[in-house]
């Protein structure tokens, strides 16, 4: 008998499932890839065959024009892979199409979360905890200082700033896949039905969300607006455009950013953000630790983020854990 979990190995460029000859979220082109979700640090183009949810495949097609080789896996459906490995895609609650991948082989079960969160998100189905032997978790916000407030509170801050300065506009930096659409839907739920103006880089992803069944209301492009129309309006752009020349066309914008990093004052200051909105698509410290307790694995493997602190927590709670040194995962602009 081989050592436990020897069939699944963390390598610098992804998690290798040896008997099935496939990789999870590889950062280099491989023959067979299992992809948890569409963010660029997890989903890359150029693989021979890509297994992912239909939504993730659609997102990848939009980003990399890679139609061939896509093999859709619906939530809950179990795929038989070579080498007597089975893979089941389970909702992760991170962004549209995001999935945990449940792998089973030789009586052992490993769950790879990709990125996930536990807070409700109207743009995707909620995270489903799956009991397992090895839980491969993210740790983007793996420090006890991170505690994401209810999103309603942050949306109210955004709407209050808009009320207070009717002559200005509120420019919200939000990651183009997931965060932007979630903010839009939450604004609609809070009763904001005016036009929401978009930076050009947001448009295609928003259209795709609508095609996939997430209505976003009246969206228009900033390039089509007269400056007067933008007074008192909400504009959404990728974080990189916040302090860019692009924003000069806007009427005295209030710079906001929707990100979990905004919990820390100096992170907001480093980006010249005036209105920090603590909105994240990742689990905060409380969610990360509560999820490990709920899933109750024999071992936790921590992929990326602030793994040192989460390791420490596991140690304090007598839980076996190890940090994986994967490359290529970024602290994306969440």
């Amino acid at each position: 008998m081989t050592a436990p979990f020897a069939w699944i190995r963390p390598e610098p460029h992804g998690i290798h499932v040896a008997p099935a000859n496939c990789w999870i979220d590889p950062s280099q082109p491989v023959a067979n890839a299992l992809v948890t979700h569409g963010h660029a640090d997890h989903a890359r183009g150029g693989h021979g065959r890509t297994i992912a949810t239909p939504e993730t495949l659609a997102i990848m097609e939009l980003r990399y024009q890679t139609r061939e080789g896509g093999l859709p896996a619906h939530y809950g459906e179990t795929l038989r892979l070579p080498g007597d490995v089975s893979a089941t895609f389970v909702p992760a609650g991170h962004v549209l199409g995001s999935a945990q991948i449940v792998l089973e082989h030789a009586g052992e079960r490993v769950v790879v979360t990709g990125d996930y969160k536990r807070m409700p998100d109207p743009t995707c189905p909620p995270f489903e905890p799956v009991a397992c032997d090895v839980f491969v978790t993210e740790a983007t916000f793996g420090l006890p200082v991170f505690c994401h407030p209810p999103i309603e509170q942050e949306i109210a801050k955004l709407l209050a700033a808009r009320e207070r300065y009717p002559e200005r506009c509120v420019l919200v930096g939000a990651y183009a896949l997931g965060k932007a659409q979630r903010v839009i839907v939450e604004l609609r739920r809070a009763g904001h039905h005016d036009v929401i103006w978009l930076h050009g880089a947001m448009e295609r992803m928003c259209r795709l969300y609508e095609e996939l069944g997430v209505p976003l209301g009246d969206l228009r492009l900033v390039t089509d607006a007269k400056k007067e129309e933008l007074r008192g309006a909400i504009v959404i752009c990728p974080p990189s455009a916040l302090n860019d020349r692009w924003s000069r066309r806007l009427p005295d914008p209030i710079t906001a950013m929707a990100s979990g990093w905004m919990r820390v004052r100096q992170r907001a200051r480093q980006r010249n953000v005036e209105l920090p909105l603590v909105i994240s698509d990742h689990a905060d410290w409380g969610e990360l630790t509560a999820t490990i307790e709920e899933v109750n694995p024999q071992e936790s493997w921590i992929t990326h983020g602030r793994e040192e602190a989460l390791l420490r927590w596991c140690q304090l709670h007598q839980r076996r854990a190890r940090a994986l040194a994967l490359v290529g995962y970024e602290d994306e602009d969440d």
Binding site: L143, V145, Q266, A309, R312, W313
Partner: peptide, 13 residues
Amino acid sequence: DPVLFALSRDFVG
């Protein structure tokens, strides 16, 4: 926990 405090302080600044 002192270690968690130190890691947090280091990040927050």
